[in-house]
Amino acid sequence: MFFEPPTAQDEPSESPQPGLSPWQAPPALERGAVLVSDLVLARTQDVAMIVQTIQAFSTGCLINVDVITRSSADDSALTRAIYQHMVTGVKAGAPLPDDLLRFGVRFADGSKVTTVGHRIGKRHPPSAAPPPGPQISWLLPGMSMRSGPEDSSVLVAGLWLWPSPPAEPFQLAVEWPAGGVELTFAEVDGAAIASAAGRSLPYWPDGEAE
């Protein structure tokens, strides 16, 4: 089993905590270097998932995924699928519900990290101690519509992978049983991300007035 139930310590907390830690989002004053990906993660009759771009930063990488549903699909289910507090049955030790859209990364050494147990919008003080291992976090997604004879909905989701992955191939995993997407793996070029990270520039060069 790749995607496992959240552990007890992963249960979401209702206590508001200000600020974003470095493992939750890209650095605020850094532009990131963009890699065009066009990596197809999944494609069914009504759902497609494409990694359009990857932005490499000095501290990690932002994997930008388009999740497209056709008019025959329930687009409201797509919105609910990424917010774990809106999906019933996400409990520590319990089987994951089919409604939950989940992503994960598996590295060459066999270690992995997933979005299961991560709550969008949960904040930690920037001064908090970093977690012991890699983290993959949802960033707030956006929805858009597309024109044409057949309506479609597009969820633009960002997956923040911290810290920067090793300079070797790794696998990006996705599973969404309710959307007809079985567990699928796609290879990502870690060396290209590592190279691009060196080209990530600040929004304001040193010495330039803000």
Rank of each mutant, 00 (worst) to 15 (best):
A81Y: 06
P131N: 02
Q135F: 05
L139P: 04
I63A: 07
L96C: 03
A167P: 09
K112L: 14
G89F: 11
G148D: 07
W176K: 04
T88E: 12
Q171V: 06
S71H: 00
E182G: 07
L155R: 03
R80A: 10
E30C: 09
P130G: 01
S137N: 14
G158Y: 14
G19L: 12
P202R: 07
W23Y: 12
S164T: 11
E4Q: 15
S200C: 09
L101I: 10
T114Q: 15
Q55R: 15
V87M: 11
N64H: 11
Q84R: 07
P6T: 06
R31G: 05
E4R: 15
D75S: 13
G89E: 06
P205E: 02
L161H: 09
V105S: 08
A25P: 03
H85C: 03
V65K: 04
A94K: 13
A186F: 05
V65G: 03
G89K: 11
V87G: 04
E187H: 02
D74T: 02
V67M: 08
E210Q: 13
R106G: 05
F170C: 07
S15C: 09
P131T: 06
A197R: 09
A42F: 13
L20W: 13
P95D: 01
Q171I: 05
R43N: 10
L29T: 11
S152H: 13
S137M: 13
P177N: 14
L140E: 02
D189P: 02
H85Q: 12
S137W: 08
S58Q: 09
T59K: 14
A129I: 04
P202I: 02
M145W: 11
P130H: 08
L140H: 12
L159K: 08
V65Y: 09
G117Q: 07
H85K: 13
T79P: 05
V40E: 10
Q45T: 12
A129F: 11
T59E: 09
Q135Y: 04
V36W: 01
D109C: 09
E30F: 05
R70H: 03
A157L: 15
L39W: 10
S72G: 08
W23F: 13
V181R: 05
T114W: 15
S111Q: 10
Q9N: 14
P134I: 11
T79H: 13
T69L: 08
G117T: 05
F103M: 10
R80C: 02
P202T: 00
G207N: 09
A28H: 15
I193L: 10
W176L: 07
G180R: 06
L29G: 14
S111I: 01
W160N: 00
P169T: 02
S144P: 01
R119P: 00
V181Y: 02
E210P: 10
H124M: 07
Q84N: 03
S152Y: 12
R70W: 05
A186W: 00
